[in-house]
């Protein structure tokens, strides 16, 4: 009886539909969800926009070795290196990246730069809302990618005590 067979098939199919109606929803409610991520959820391994990490002293980890740029298949990393001085210490090693640009027009988020980095300075963050109406805005500068100062640096920072005594404004001493 083909008619009965068809009815049975429809009933079987609809039963799954009705069953699923009472299950909790797994679709992400982005961008209408709650919180700063607007409902987006990530696996820890998600490769988003890059973050340039700092070490425990708040110094940049990047030593401008250019290995990320050398490894980049889309050639989107531009670096200019400079030497740390006693007055201006930016990274933990002899040199630091004076300019570090990533061109997100070209970046394919492959993660090779992260793999190449000998100091774990460049990592993938979870940033993903990169779209823009202006392509020149897709070239991210170092300042846009740098991780914020570690939390303890705020409370435990050493200030320029000598100069404050002489009336200078308080500034946290680099590398403290």
């Amino acid at each position: 009886m083909p008619v009965l067979k068809n009815i049975a098939a429809i009933a079987k199919g609809m039963s799954i539909t009705f069953m699923e109606m009472f299950q909790p929803t797994i679709v992400e409610n982005y961008p209408d969800g709650p919180g700063p991520l607007k409902g987006a959820k990530f696996q820890a391994r998600f490769r988003g926009t890059h973050v340039l990490q700092r070490d425990e002293n708040g110094l940049e980890k990047c030593v401008a070795c250019f290995l990320c740029a050398a490894n980049c298949p889309s050639n989107c990393i531009y670096i200019e290196a400079a030497e740390n001085t006693a007055e201006q210490r930016v990274s933990g090693a002899e040199r630091y990246a004076k300019i570090y640009n990533i061109d997100y027009n070209r970046c394919i988020f492959c993660g090779y730069c992260v793999e190449a980095c000998p100091t774990d300075a460049i990592t993938h963050g979870h940033g993903f809302e990169v779209a823009t109406f202006n392509v020149s805005g897709l070239i991210y500068r170092k300042e846009q990618m740098l991780a914020p100062m570690p939390a303890h640096m705020g409370a435990n920072a050493v200030f320029n005590q000598d100069e404050i005594g002489a009336g200078a404004p308080a500034v946290a001493v680099q590398g403290s």
């Binding site: 401008a64 070795c65 250019f66 740029a69 050398a70 200019e80 290196a81 400079a82 030497e83 002899e94 040199r95």
Partner: peptide
């Protein structure tokens, strides 16, 4: 030339 760039660049 110190720290300006790397040979392959």
């Amino acid at each position: 030339y110190r720290y300006k760039t790397r040979p392959w660049e």
